[in-house]
């Protein structure tokens, strides 16, 4: 290996290290800026208390619950549809239609989230308002429905990839024994592809928790603990976007770094969980 090769290797390594540390850098910045709050001993109040800046209360529990509520509901809506659609692409495979759907799903990944939010405001919100007959239509259900559309492609592509990885010979064996497609799915595909299905679901949940625009535009942004799907709620992401305009030195402002750390930890754990599931494949 000559000196040019060695220099190039060193250069590539340092770039690699920079990329690897970039994620930690993001966390580091937030921890440093959130540190005054963590040190002040108010962390527990902030994580569990109510949000009422006028009374000196800066709890973000309602936002954390809002995030999980909206993301969870969108997952419940999107999961069956995604599973059905990925089985449609990989197992039912009607000629032409299967490929068309696959192409559409891929295309959906390119649609900006702000457009989902925009269409949501002018199309979905009035619909939800007239169906529910109460409130403004800006509520958990509206945000979750739109969010479900956003995370569907992630899940479908992940599911269909793990279904496609099931060895062809196993499926041929079922066919040879006279098994029906349903039996194939139940006894071969699900048992073999479940780790992929789990990790796809976890990643989609992370995407739903991490999305800002849809929850911000459609969720209504109330700061109280939500009780029903027709209640308005604020997510951690929307909270960051809304409080960023506050005075920098205020306690109110510092809570957004705690929100950021919380979001970081949630999505980071999601990645670890998805990887653990993949290892079982």
């Amino acid at each position: 290996m000559d000196s040019g090769d060695r220099a190039a290797r060193r250069l590539f390594f340092s770039a690699g290290l920079t990329c690897a540390l970039a994620g930690l850098l993001v966390l580091g910045f937030m921890v440093v800026l959130g540190l005054p709050l963590i040190r002040s001993g108010m962390l527990w109040d902030i994580l569990t208390g109510p949000w009422s800046p006028d009374h000196g209360q800066f709890g973000i529990l309602a936002m954390a619950v809002g995030s999980v509520y909206i993301a969870g509901l969108s997952l419940i809506i999107a999961f069956p549809v995604s599973l059905g659609a990925s089985l449609f692409i990989e197992v039912v495979r009607p000629r032409g239609a299967g490929r068309l759907l696959e192409w559409l799903v891929r295309l959906m990944t390119a649609i900006p989230t702000v457009i989902y939010g925009f269409v949501g405001i002018f199309l979905l919100v009035p619909l939800v308002r007239s169906f529910s007959g109460q409130g403004s239509g800006l509520c958990i259900l509206t945000a979750a429905l739109m969010l479900a559309v956003l995370i569907c492609p992630t899940m479908i592509l992940f599911f269909s990839r793990s279904i496609a990885r099931v060895p062809r010979t196993w499926l041929d064996a079922v066919d040879a024994m006279g098994g029906t497609p349903y039996q194939k799915v139940r006894h071969i595909i699900f048992p073999a592809a479940w780790p992929g299905i789990v990790s796809g679901t976890v990643l989609a949940f992370g995407r739903a928790v991490g999305d800002t625009l849809i929850a911000l535009m459609l969720g209504g942004n109330a700061v109280t603990l939500p009780e029903s799907v027709l209640d308005s709620a604020r997510t951690l992401t929307a909270h960051i976007a809304l409080v960023i305009a506050a005075d920098f030195d205020s306690l109110e402002f510092k809570t957004i770094f705690i929100s950021g750390i919380l979001l970081y930890v949630m999505t980071g754990l999601g990645i670890l969980a998805a990887r653990a599931a993949e290892k079982n494949l």
């Binding site: 990329c19 994620g23 930690l24 992401t237 960051i240 950021g260 970081y264 999505t267 990645i271």
Partner: peptide, 14 residues
């Protein structure tokens, strides 16, 4: 793993 974690960070956190 680190790049995956970076990819998963919500854009508002970035």
């Amino acid at each position: 793993l680190m790049v995956d974690i970076l990819a998963a960070i919500p854009s508002i956190v970035v």
